[in-house]
Design a protein around this nucleic acid. Sequence first.
RNA 1: GGCCCCAUCGUCUAGUGGUUAGGACAUCGGCCUCUCACGCCGGUAACACGAGUUCAAAUCUCGUUGGGGUCACCA
Length: 486
Amino acid sequence: MSSPVRVRFAPSPSGYLHIGGVRTALYSWLWARKHGGTFVLRIEDTDAERSTQESVDVILDSMRWLGLDWDEGPDVGGPNGPYRQSERLDVYKEYAEKLIASGHAYRCYATKEEIQAARDAHAATGTKDGFVFESPWRERTDGDPSEPHSVRFKTPREGSTTFVDQIRGPIEVAHETIQDFILLRNTGLPLYNFGCVVDDVTMGITLVARGDDHIINTTPQVLIYEALGAPVPDFAHLPMVLGPDGKRFSKRHGAVSVTEYRDLGYLPDAVLNYLARLGWGHGDQEVFTRAELVEHFDWAHCGKQAGKYDPKKFLFVQAEHLRMQPDATLAALAQPFLAARGLDVAADDARVLAAMPYIKPRSTLIPDLAENLDYFVRDVPEQDEKAAKKFLKPDAAPHLRALAELAQQAQPFDQATLDAAVTAWLETEGLAMKNVAQPARVALSGRSASPGLFEVMEVLGREVSVRRLLAAAEQAAQAESAGAGA
RNA sequence: GGCCCCAUCGUCUAGUGGUUAGGACAUCGGCCUCUCACGCCGGUAACACGAGUUCAAAUCUCGUUGGGGUCACCA
């Protein structure tokens, strides 16, 4: 085929890794993995004001948690480093000089004040056209390079430039709407459009994926590629991720940072799956494993319109992935959340493993697992007051004692035996399961909702089941005297 | 305002000239049932509008309207 695929994700470290950014990273990563290419991670920290090391750490942590591994970048290095723009200043300087030498760029000594004055004058004319700063230095050569100056690109005055977006098709912009944009600030630091292109050129990037807010930046960038005589990569501009109300996705819509989802107990694969499907589709399939995503992803099936974040759908996808996990994996993931409830159990606790199949379909997030596992591993189940009051009444006491007796006798102590014994007993007593189920449920779990009674009993074991049943019978009987005494 | 992008159920989408416009989430009924889930069955619900091209348009063209992005020595 053509040249090997090299894709990059280039976040600027000015905060956490935004959920929208994750999608960009994911699509890029998928593209690289699908083609056996290289995934490069680059830190765009040329804005010293906003970039922080803490942010870099958070972003790397987030990427690792998601399992979006990079072949070249911070930590792992690579042949095209360094991978932080702040460490590549000499490279930008070198390329800027090249463009000046070839007549594609020039030194501009205009001050901020002069530019602002020009902008104000333009506004004062009341014109409807956009402001395009025309530097007097475009054609002058009498400046003193030792004086502070920026480097501007000499944008062609005529014609237009077209590039073909992988998602949107051809996009054409007239040169007259593009001003002589700045390549290098007077501080020597590159501006986004320049640093980005120089890095993508020197790192051999073959496809650039990013948010569609960059679509307008692409034309000037293509101009730089051409001026440099470098091959122009493919571009794919992803639509934005919006909040449910259609506004830019922000904190008030819910969690925006990847780390928040991790702490909330989402699975990385679920996050990836949901994000992949938000803006991309593969027929009727909704649930994808990571491998399936890699196999099926393509730009052609990416939607063009902005996607609204749907927390309910996200939860659905998360639940699906939770159920796909092996019991042992979930047990290990649940352990810290159990510990947070004061339940100190091993990651491979037999009760946890035994209960997991029944807990899984009743849980969505990892903390739910711990919540549903609670009474299986707690010595004495915490009792829901309302449930106890409603079901542990005097007339339930004899039933609970009978169930305890049946549990004591069951041989072997498993679901089938328990079920048969209880069914037979109900028959002779002329009772229905629903007459005794809820009191028994409260007795065993302390709650009014739980997996099937026989499932719970089997996991709990004979001894614990009998003990809880009898304790509840006692409690139910007590309710009588309390009621009569009042 | 200039420039650029976008437009199928509430939401994510399938659909690339001929379909009863499909699926999923959500929602509403029902089944299952010892509770809660899971699961299963079914319902409500969409091509923004207007011209044109065509035997035929959700699909192609133009316009309108409505969203969004961008106009920095931020990224």
